[in-house]
Amino acid sequence: MLFLNLTVELDSSNALKKPQHQSSYFGSIVEDCKSFFSSFYYLELVHVRREANQAAHYLAKFAISSLTDFVWIEETPRCISSIVALDVLPLFD
């Protein structure tokens, strides 16, 4: 599968800043990420508030408790199905 047009959202503002003290370990991960960037037609990295990143947040918590790796293709895991449903609702102020 090829995502030509992708927006990446993170809720850590540190990860989007230029790393200040570049340990070789951290640097190599950043370089690995960069090597992927060129394969996209359009790629945008943005910072979002934690509230906008709930699905990923809860899934990460689930990952700790489950101790196993999971991959779902074209289906929503039950643990975040309600959050995904909430995300697509329009925002009421």
């Binding site: 995502f3 992708l6 850590s12 979002v48 508030r49 509230e51 925002l91």
Partner: peptide, 23 residues
């Protein structure tokens, strides 16, 4: 910079990746 507080649909034909860690 103003950040989104609610998840928004990616622009037409695009995809959005949300990544996070816990721990």
């Amino acid at each position: 910079p103003i950040s989104n507080v609610h998840w928004s649909t990616p622009i037409n034909g695009g995809y959005k990746l949300n990544a996070d860690v816990a721990g």
